[in-house]
Simulated scan of single mutants.
Amino acid sequence: MRTHRRALFVLAVVLLLGSCSVFTESEEPTTPPPEKERLVVGVGNAVETAPLRLGVSEGLFRRGGLDVELTELTEDDDPLAMLAKEEVDVVFADDVTLFRAAAEGTELSLQGEAYVAGTGSMALVTLPDSAYTDPGKLPAPRIAVPARDGLGTLTARSALKAAGVDPNKITFQVIPFDGMVEALRSGQVDAAWMVEPYLTTAQMEHGARVLADCAHGATESFPMSAYATTEQFNEANPRTLALFRELLAKTQQKGSDRGAVRRALPEIADLDDVTASLVSLGSYPQAVHVERLQRVADLMQGAGLLSERLDAASLVPKGELP
């Protein structure tokens, strides 16, 4: 009888331990891995993409479980065409280009904001001997911009309109940044719209003068650029992109250390130390701010670059909406 009770006791203990083991295992669900371990990201302007570049070079993404490969974009590259051809998974582009494409039917998903303008980070410039010293002086100025109907067109129109110029009388000429000083010198254009680091380089090497700050008034603290992918890629890789957004937010924090950004510029933007120390920096958002992005879409509509109002929130993954 005593033996029988001991056997029942042992059996109860075994069953109890087994149930505890099952319970413990059920309390530790495994997180599904990202669909892709490697993302190819197209990057452009080194100032605007500095934190991402630093995050990749310092191994932040790799330690977070994602291998990010950077592909350099030139001024001749079409970032949206590269997305469509699947040459890159995520691409850096200015917000005006992205919003115009979205309005024309391209299904895009914004994965994060890259850069917001700060004082002096984009401006209309002239050369020292130019008679064009007041933005309102010429009723029909010729302005060099790197792309037609892009960020330069939008913000230059805003700055000149504030100075009393009829936007419809402005002539925009598409000229790459490295050709703008020569276009100014030859008289081909009256002023050129530049961003950093081209702006500071033109000032240092050619004595360029700021005619109008394009990060002022209606375009103060203006969203300039973002990272985007196709909606199709977003739907197929939700965990991968959620991890990318999480790590991007962490690396964007590096942008708050302006000293670190400036110290990195000589290597990532091919600048000398003096020029890098003088570059005007904006800010690097750690989260998508829909109201801020809506300013871009609304200004585009007001300028005639969009025929209808675009809802910026429709381009943001639902989990990222505030």
Rank of each mutant, 00 (worst) to 15 (best):
E104M: 07
V90L: 06
L39F: 06
N237A: 13
G179L: 07
P141I: 06
Y132C: 07
L52E: 00
S283M: 01
T24K: 13
K254G: 04
K36E: 11
D77N: 12
T219W: 00
S283H: 08
S314Q: 10
I143S: 05
E196Y: 04
G42I: 07
P146G: 09
S21R: 12
K137H: 13
L306W: 06
L160P: 02
V189N: 01
S277C: 04
S158H: 05
Q173E: 15
L248Y: 03
T155E: 03
L306S: 00
P33A: 14
P285I: 04
G136Q: 09
M82T: 01
Q253F: 01
E320I: 04
L293M: 14
I143V: 14
L70I: 05
A102P: 02
Y132R: 08
V261I: 15
L321Y: 07
S121L: 07
G302V: 06
N45V: 00
N168E: 15
D257V: 07
V125E: 00
N234C: 11
E25C: 11
S307T: 13
V274Y: 15
R209F: 09
T201K: 12
L110I: 14
V296W: 00
G150N: 03
V145Y: 07
A192I: 04
P32R: 13
L70N: 03
V195D: 10
D67V: 04
L160Y: 04
Q232H: 11
G59M: 04
P167A: 09
A147T: 11
I175N: 00
A84H: 08
V279G: 02
R6V: 12
Y198S: 13
L54V: 02
D298H: 09
G105L: 08
T119D: 11
T49I: 03
L15K: 06
T49M: 04
K250Y: 02
G259K: 12
D311K: 11
K137R: 14
D311P: 00
V125T: 08
T119P: 13
L73R: 10
R258V: 11
W193T: 02
T171D: 07
L184W: 01
D129P: 01
S57H: 09
Q252Y: 01
A192E: 04
R38Q: 13
